[in-house]
Structures are given as C-alpha cells and as structure tokens.
Design a protein around this nucleic acid. Structure first.
Lengths: 222, 222
DNA sequence: ATTATCTATAGATCTATAGATAATGC
DNA sequence: ATTATCTATAGATCTATAGATAATGC
C-alpha cells in the first residue's frame, strides 16, 4: 500500500514542527545565556532563527514558557547522567566511598557532557549558570536538580561520618559556586591570566576540580 | 559675614542633590541585584524612590550610566580594603606567606565589609555577584578588580613557588566562583539544606572558606 | 539666578492575538 | 482537513527629551 518510491518526500509536518521547535529552543538558549530573560526579546529569537515572531508564540505561547522549556530540555539529561554516575560510584565503592570519588562522579560527568556535547551543550551550560545565579532561577534549580544534589550529599555524609550536615552543605555550596563559574564562561579568567587559562577549557577544570574540592572538604574537620 | 542663626535651614541644594543621587543609586542597586540590567526599568527605580522618572535622567543621563555608577560607587571601597589587607598580610608574613593567610586577608575582609555594612552593602554584594556572572559584567570586574586579584595571585605564587601559573589561576577561579555564589544569596542552599544553612550567614562562610580553599590549592601539587 | 523637580509627549519597542495564506495529510 | 507560517495590528510599555514650575542662593 505504501509507495516505496516517494520522490523527494519534502519534510513531513511532524519533522517540520520538531525542527522549528528545536531551532527556536537553540536560538533562545544562546540568547538567554548571553543576556538573560529580560535581555532577550521574542523578536531577537525569531530573527536568529529566521522566522516570524508569531511562530514563537504559536509553538511556545509566551516568553516565560519558552524560557522554562529551554531549561527543561536538557536539565533531565544532565540530572539523569549524574544520578547514574553517582549510583555506579556508590555500588563500586561499597563500604568505602570517598569525597573525591563522589565528586569525580558528580563533576566530571557533567563537564564531559558539556565539553563533548558540542556548541549547544556549551550554550546550555552558560544558560544554566546564569539561571542559577538569580533568585527566580535558583528555584528552577531546586525543581530539577535537588534529587541528584541530595544524592551527592548522602554519599558525602557516608564518606565523612563525623561531619556536621552544616559543614557538608557549605562544602557543596563552594563546589557548586566554582562549577557555575566554570559553566558561565565569562572570559574573565582568560583575560586575568593573560591567556594562560581559557574559560572554555573544561578539561583543565576537570583535571583539578574534584581533587581541589575534596581536599577542601577534608580540611573542615574540627 | 555669615549668619550664625539660620532658622531651620531646610536642606541645602547640595545636600538635596546628594541625597537624591544616593537614593536613586540605592534603589537601582537593589533592583538590578534582583532582576539584572534589562529586568529593571527607570520607572521601577523612580517608583521605588518616590520621584519622577525624569529625575533619574536628570542625574544619570541614561540607564547604562546609572548601572555603571551603581557598580562604581562601592567597587573602589571593597577593592581598596582588600588591597590594604593583602599589603598588611604581606608585611606581617615577611618571607613566609601562606595560601591560607592570603585567602583570609582577601576573603574575610570582603565578607566582613558586606555583613557588617548593613542592607545596602548586602545588596551590593548580590548586585556584584550577578554582574560578575555575565559576559559584559565580567569586563567591569576586570576594570575595577584586576589589581587586587593580581596582588592576591602574586602572594599565592610566593606561597607556592613550585606551582605553575595555570594551577594558581584555576585555583583563583574556583575561589571566586564560591565567593560569588555566596554573595549572590539566591536562597538555594537554604532550601536544599532544609534551613541548616542560610544564604545570608556570611560568618558561617567566613569560618570555612579560606581554610577550605587553601587546602584545595595545596592539593594541586603534582 | 541657578538648580531641583514635575508635566507632557515623541518615538521606538515589545508581547500577544486575530485572521489570512500556504503547505502537507488522508 | 489540518497544520505551519505570515500579515496586520492592538495595547502596553520604555527610554529619553523639551519645556514648565518650584525651590534655594547670592
């Protein structure tokens, strides 16, 4: 019943739809990462895609929803990946989890995802870092990332059985600050170091971060 | 020649001017810290002060200039204070500066300034953290804070003579990320820790941060 | 006489919607 | 017949300026 020889079957509607949606999300992701929610207009987004502004409304209703969808598109992926890495580490470490091991699972997994994921994932990293730095955005972080963070915290507690919860949470606060500063890629460290370090050199960060932070945790012992 | 008995001399013009300017800066500082440059209108600022929008233009010409003035008002103070603290530490430490000593001078001085400086200084802390997280804002950081940061780096180099510059700059990158995450006070750590930690508890951060980061630096030795 | 403050308004966006047209789907 | 895309436009801002009024300064 199906023609096996369809001549240049153009784009099917479903494909077309999916493609437009992805393009809009990509453009919005990039622009929001640079200028924040209020610094981007729907015209900017449409212009970057090369479509009319009204199409953005057609697919995303309003600006707030578009922003939320940009956040949500990749949030699940990074959350799931890190959760799996933590589960795997926990299984391997059995009775003897270490702070550094847990941090490698948590941090390296994420840095790899962005660095190996290409330009879009790098844009998302900046977008997420920018979001996390705002009062409203921090609530989005709660919603999507609490489980994986609390998982990390639970392993850290086992690795540091005599530590107070307060010490562990403040340690996490330091870790996430450094991570967000990395993901933001503002270019400041490049200029400050006169080119010795580059904001987009996630492998250089990966090489140092878990070790650095693990030592920090261990130093908090009274 | 001067009347010594002026009855209720009202506000002199100079005072009035200075007061209006301060009020506008305070309002803008708070609003920008919450919503960023594009998320604040000059009407919002004027409304918060209780004056007409045009007065904001009268004193600050345009929005960009207002933003820049908000940044500049307190940037010099924090930069100078930290520079003095580093100079003092360097003199005391003489031939034997330590990473932890330098970080205490750099970090504790700043945290004290914000925490003891009252609401406005706390607002500035959030404002600055938010600025630092954006590509444009990071350039403002260069302009105002490069000298004090490079001073810190120079002491760290002396404390870690066999370290590469790359290691030291990445270490600084981690430190400043954690500091900015603290200054931002997004409330995330409060919710995550279920109230055990509070975003505005700078003393709790001060108690841990220099020690934590110093241990991190020391761990980077090959 | 000078400076601070307000009124009125121009001109440029911005978000969002209603409704028309063009392309695919059955 | 349904879905994707564009045209036209309403209504609400926003920044910025010109010019009037009110208050201090000499």
């Amino acid at each position: 019943m199906s023609k096996t020889t369809e001549k240049q079957p153009r784009r099917k509607k479903a494909e077309q739809r999916a493609e437009s949606i992805e393009h809009i999300l990509d453009a919005a992701e990039y622009l929001f990462s640079m200028n924040g929610f209020y610094g981007v207009t729907l015209r900017d987004v449409a212009k970057r895609v090369g479509i009319h502004t009204t199409l953005v409304h057609y697919y995303f209703q309003d600006k707030q929803n578009l922003f939320q969808k940009v956040f949500a598109r990749r949030a699940g992926v990074t959350s799931d990946r890190r959760m799996q890495a933590l589960d795997k580490y926990e299984a391997e470490a059995a009775e003897n989890p270490t702070v550094e091991g847990a941090l490698h699972a948590f941090l390296d997994t994420d840095l790899d995802l962005y660095f190996n994921g290409g330009e879009h994932w790098m844009n998302y990293a900046s977008f997420g870092a920018r979001v996390s730095n705002t009062p409203e955005g921090a609530k989005l972080m709660d919603e999507y990332f609490d489980p994986v963070v609390l998982k990390l915290v639970s392993i850290l507690k086992r690795a540091l059985p005599d530590y107070s919860e307060e010490d562990i949470f403040w340690g996490y606060h330091f870790v996430t600050g450094s991570l967000m500063n990395t993901l933001a890629r503002t270019g400041r460290i490049d200029r400050l170091s006169n080119g010795i370090c580059r904001s987009d050199d996630f492998p250089a960060v990966k090489k140092r971060m878990a070790k650095f932070m693990a030592a920090g945790f261990l130093s908090l012992k009274d």
